[in-house]
Design a protein around this nucleic acid. Structure first.
Length: 542
RNA sequence: GGCCCCAUCGUCUAGCCUGGUUCAGGACACCUCCCUUUCACGGAGGUAACAGGGGUUCGAAUCCCCUUGGGGUCACCA
């Protein structure tokens, strides 16, 4: 969702010669971290989204983006500015100090709920005089600053949704500075938008009601009002909100399905596990979640941009698909790049309804893009992906082996990750290949006359005598063997060979598979396979 | 629950503003068949939607109202 918002903001600005401004809204000390900010910049960079103004960032290619005359672009570094404008509001009486404790507010909320009403904080009569309030704070009391919201209707003009008017009294005296001295989001945003010269704001629809707060603040501060556009939300296919919690949800379900009472060994410690099971809102750390998922053998849903990157999606495809959730260029066109999006995007064509994020369609788009790219580009990009995500896999292959593997995998890859996920057999030691007694393997080895097992024994001899070991020489030799032994039916011999070298029945085309593996490994594996299957079915050697 | 918003195939959407050219188009998924050395890919067909009810109009998916349904929001989070 955040990525789509950024993409559309970028496209909107670029399409009309504007500037895309990136601001880090880190006024919540509990939830903000440098790592998170850097991760966000990295994600945008990977997606191909750059910003004209904002945090400085040096891309992997050495180019630096960001900076600008209106910094700092981290709100946590702008507190003095906010305090200045807070002072203006305090001076004019448009804002006031409030000393309510969390318990008091909670009690009032409960009481309102009991009456079937929504709780709205609203001061009655004069506020505690500023001087007195500041004395109490100096003496150690905790206080927030609230905005004295005028009791009047508020009209929001939105370029996507149209116009909406909230009745008078709907917006309460909301907090604009927290007890820790940081402004709330609402206040910081309003000040920054003015100071940074923001003319257009595109954000998710969940902010729609917040815009009313921003409008009353702008009026009180004498600020200009940007043009707003509220983007439809993105949901999971089941209609639930897409959130980072979905990973924990998946894990919780797996833990329950397996009726686990404690954490699997080497994942998380007992105490963390127990606390996590008890508190449904608690999120496991990234590494812990990964370990637990591996131990439970479940796939974590892709949620963050980085998840999609690691799953082997192409950034240009992700952008394309993200834009399609909530916008379309009209007509039947679906495939486009970011440049097209920038040229064509406009608010009038943004839909008003929330979209369910369909990973299956995303995968189909990714597959189309991969199939459509030149072979060399696929080899290059899948290698890059491997360097980032599968270093240990690449280490076990020569450059030539990788090239053969990538070329053979191109047309059957839906993601850049498929070749790594689907070819573990290649990086398994020859004597560690397992010849499982699975149904498809059984069929390949035992059915027919002669049986797959017999054919494999026969072709092993042919292969053993081969001088050249290339796809072409293998094809010539095996085809001749098939013509002689099984009426030219290549399938009868291809499958036993697959089982022989990979242990199972799925791999790239068989001659590619053998060529990539190499002669020695192929023969060693076939011998082990023969031994394993003959022992299994009681065939006497020879 | 209050307030606000929304409503076309299972999903993303085109069409709606500027009613007739649409017994509603595309894509993904699904089904059938073909291709095929596995897995994929590919090819040819097919099923499938204007939430319901009232208006307005010669005529409504398109305009209006109601109902129903969905969503957002009601924090010292953003």
């Amino acid at each position: 969702g955040g990525a789509r918002t950024a993409l559309l903001c970028w496209a909107f600005a670029r399409g009309r010669g504007g500037k895309f401004l990136l601001r880090i809204e880190d006024t919540d000390q509990k939830r903000s971290s440098d790592a998170a900010s850097v991760g966000f910049l990295k994600d945008l960079d990977w997606l191909g989204i750059d910003w004209n103004e904002g945090p400085e960032w040096t891309r992997p290619d050495g180019r630096t983006v960001g900076g600008g005359p209106n910094g700092p672009y981290f709100q946590s570094e702008r507190v003095a500015t906010y305090d200045h404008h807070l002072g203006r509001l305090l001076d004019s009486g448009a804002a006031y100090y409030a000393f309510d404790t969390a318990e008091e507010l909670d009690a009032k909320r409960k009481a309102a709920t009991a009456r079937g009403e929504a709780f709205r904080y609203r001061i009655e009569g004069p506020a505690i005089p500023r001087a007195e309030a500041e004395r109490r704070i100096a003496a150690g009391e905790s206080a927030v600053i609230r905005f004295r919201t005028p009791v009047a209707p508020i009209t929001i003009v939105d370029e996507i949704l149209g116009e909406a008017t909230l009745p008078a009294g709907e917006v309460d005296d909301f907090v604009i500075r927290k007890a820790d001295g940081f402004p709330t989001y609402h206040f910081a945003v309003v000040v920054d938008d003015e100071l940074m010269g923001v003319t257009h704001v595109l954000r998710a629809q969940e902010h729609f009601n917040n815009t009313a707060k921003h409008i009353v603040l702008q009026d009180a501060l004498g600020f200009r009002r940007p043009t707003y556009g509220h983007l439809p939300l993105i949901f999971n296919p089941d209609g639930s909100k897409m959130s980072k919690r979905d990973k924990d949800k998946t894990l919780r379900k797996a833990v329950e399905d397996r009726k686990l009472s404690g954490p699997p060994a080497g994942t998380v410690d007992e105490a963390t596990f127990a606390a996590w099971r008890k508190d449904k809102n608690m999120q496991l750390e990234f590494a812990s979640a990964e370990r637990l998922a591996a131990a439970l053998d479940v796939a974590l849903p892709e949620i963050n941009v980085d998840d999609f990157r690691r799953s082997g999606y192409l950034p240009e495809v992700l952008c394309n698909f993200l834009a399609l959730n909530g916008w379309s260029p009209g007509g039947d066109r679906e495939k486009f790049d970011n440049e097209f999006l920038a040229r064509t995007f406009d608010l009038k064509r943004v839909v008003k309804t929330p979209a369910k994020f369909d990973r299956v369609k995303l995968l189909a788009f990714n597959c189309d893009a991969i199939t459509g790219m030149p072979r060399d580009e696929f080899v290059r990009r899948s290698r890059l992906h491997g360097e980032a995500c599968h270093a240990e896999f690449l280490e076990r292959l020569t450059a030539e082996q990788f090239r053969l593997l990538a070329e053979a995998s191109h047309e059957r890859s839906k993601t850049l990750d498929d070749l790594y996920r689907g070819n573990r057999w290649l990086v398994t030691a020859d004597d560690a290949v397992e010849f499982a007694d699975a149904k498809p393997a059984r069929k390949a080895m035992l059915e027919g006359t002669p049986s797959g097992l017999e054919l494999l024994r026969g072709v092993r001899g042919t292969l053993g005598g081969l001088a050249a070991w290339t796809r072409e020489s293998l094809e010539t030799a095996v085809t001749a063997f098939a013509a002689e032994r099984c009426e030219g039916n290549l399938g009868r011999i291809a499958q036993p060979l697959r089982v022989g070298v990979t242990g199972a029945t799925v791999s790239p085309p068989i001659f590619d598979t053998l060529a990539i593996l190499g002669k020695d490994a192929t023969l060693r594996r076939i011998d082990r396979c023969l031994a394993a299957w003959e022992a299994r079915v009681g065939v006497k050697a020879g």
